[in-house]
């Protein structure tokens, strides 16, 4: 059973949706953060791919592109000891409160 990312040739008769969505600020920042961490040697492309591929198949298929990146980055940063999930939870709460 192929992993969720391995989708070449999988039956799919959806037409290609050629519209491009306007990138949101958080998506552009997430994109840039990835590149910065890459340049610093903190995460590698191959590690990101591996982390994305390890996501639950239903989750992989339900997330948007940058959501997948984010899920994978969190996995890697926790694995490498830069962050903990609790820390991220707390920061999310703090940012939510700050936004009010």
């Amino acid at each position: 059973m192929p992993k969720p990312h391995d989708m070449g040739g999988e039956p799919n008769d959806e037409p290609i949706d050629q519209s491009d969505h306007q990138k949101m600020d958080w998506e552009m920042r997430a994109d840039a953060l990835h590149q910065v961490l890459g340049q610093k040697g903190i995460r590698r492309t191959d590690e990101m791919r591996r982390a994305m591929e390890s996501l639950d198949p239903d989750l992989y298929r339900s997330l948007s592109y940058y959501e997948r990146w984010t899920a994978a980055l969190e996995l890697l940063m926790v694995e490498k000891g830069y962050l903990t999930s609790d820390e991220i939870d707390r920061k999310v709460t703090q940012l939510d409160q700050g936004a009010n």
């Binding site: 192929p2 391995d6 070449g8 040739g9 191959d46 791919r49 591996r50 591929e53």
Partner: peptide
């Protein structure tokens, strides 16, 4: 289909 990461698609 090794358990580790690899880049050879299943279809090929």
């Amino acid at each position: 289909s090794p358990s580790h990461h690899y880049r050879t698609p299943t279809y090929i």
